[in-house]
Design a protein around this nucleic acid. Structure first.
Lengths: 255, 255
DNA sequence: AGTCGCGTTGCATGTACTGCAACGGTCGTT
DNA sequence: AACGACCGTTGCAGTACATGCAACGCGACT
């Protein structure tokens, strides 16, 4: 809505692809060099971009600090962390915590597997939204209209033969998930990786986050992993209760 | 330099302190509500701020993604990680990796101690710049003029009696560090915590990052920790060599 | 030494940002 | 249930401010 700011912010994802010099930035924004310069300078003053010795621009450290503070505001994460650690202690597998925001699902915490074979993922990375167990849990709770609209607009990449094929199938899956109160991803993203997840609910009953346990076939079979379901659900419920306790009753905080 | 962008970006640190509504933001920026609205909308479209259910604004998830991608561009981190893990495996203590950028030093990687008593720190958090071993290493390598100017401008908080007292002492310390090629922090930040660190150098010999091992007194004494120095230096040198190998010879990348 | 490329600066033009005032919805109150 | 207060939102006129141009300075490469 604000042209200047819009242009300035467009520089960030551009630099996320790697360092760039002034000319490149100006060309990509389709503005004059002097314009790009002033925008970059402003970003620089705020620490969002950094100028390296060869004069090219990179994303800056302040982004780190901000992201850090952003996550600090997500109270669920604080509450959940200890529970996730405990779950990891007892089962040994990778544990994830994720939230939904602005048509994206992303991991906000992770406890690494104690097994040598680990799943690749990273806190802050968007989650494959059509297949991940945590994504299903979070989307299943969206208001009907929003859920339907989102499902229609998504891409359905066929990571594996078991990936969700299309919007219709996805919506059916979400209905099931909402009804049963838990979700799985059985090789829908990576052929050999399975996940079981459960929702974390706020005091108003709405899903504020989702957690899952993931393990590769080579460590435990899908059936064995499913035996962890009660444990996962108990953990999620425990987090929900503690979260309800710490959250000011009226505050409808997302995360 | 660009008023509009400047104002828009000022919103981010403001929201980092916690969610805020439109009126608050407008008041803090000292602009009209409608102006604040348009800025917030633009930030929103780019995913940098998120609107929660109570209509208040929070920092958004895209910040995470960007920070994530920013760090992915720091090649030192990629190279260093395995070495840091190995060092942690062998000694068990907390291992940190840090870089200098825009008058700040910050942790970009960390391997947690295997001992129950752990040092508090967080990736992305600014480092106490006048006392931390990694900060000394990074600042010691700055060009004379910049180093001196920075030292004069810093605050010297007395965390403990052994904290660096003033600019003169700090500059002397940096000279020593530069000469000996390693640094310590013996209770200068937290009374009971000691660190030993060594620099990681780029192909041109300049310090691109610094690493350190930290442990509380209750686990090992300062003397014991110092016996790890050769090990730490060997690790830092190994990273330097590998980094020199992977870095295009001409690229003067900061991180 | 000369030329090319890139970042930088000052300035005139006009665009798009600003603040105002009025509207509409929601919540809390009487 | 009706009223009032509050907050977010919209359209608009004026003008501050962002834009692009052209010229300069600097360093690298030939």
């Amino acid at each position: 809505m604000s042209q200047t700011v819009d242009r300035a912010l467009s520089i960030l994802p551009l630099l996320a692809r790697g360092p760039a010099d002034l000319g490149t930035v100006a060309a990509e924004l389709d503005v004059h060099k002097s314009t790009a310069l002033r925008l970059l300078r402003t970003l620089h003053e705020h620490g969002l971009v950094h100028r390296q010795r060869d004069q090219r621009y990179r994303l800056g450290a302040r982004l780190f600090t901000l992201a850090q503070e952003a996550v600090a505001n997500l109270d669920v994460r604080e509450v959940a962390h200890a529970h996730l650690m405990a779950l990891n202690e007892s089962c040994g597998h990778t544990v994830h915590l994720a939230v939904y925001e602005e048509r994206e699902v992303l991991y906000i915490d992770k406890v690494e597997s104690r097994y040598p074979v680990r799943m690749y993922s990273r806190v802050g990375k968007p989650v494959p939204i059509t297949v991940a167990a945590v994504a299903k849990l979070l989307l299943a709770d969206l208001p009907e209209a929003e859920r339907r609209a989102l499902a229609e607009r998504l891409d359905y990449p066929q990571y594996t033969p078991r990936s969700t094929p299309d919007a219709a199938a996805f919506l059916r899956e979400l209905a099931t998930v909402r009804e049963q109160g838990w979700a799985t991803d059985l090789g829908g993203h990576e052929e050999s990786i399975n996940c079981v997840g459960a929702p974390i609910k706020g005091p108003d009953g709405r899903v504020v986050a989702a957690m899952s346990v993931s393990a590769p076939n080579v460590v435990v079979s899908a059936e064995e992993l499913l035996t962890l379901l009660p444990h996962v659900r108990r953990t999620a419920d425990a987090i929900s209760r503690e979260y309800a306790g710490t959250t000011p009753p009226k505050e409808a905080a997302t995360g």
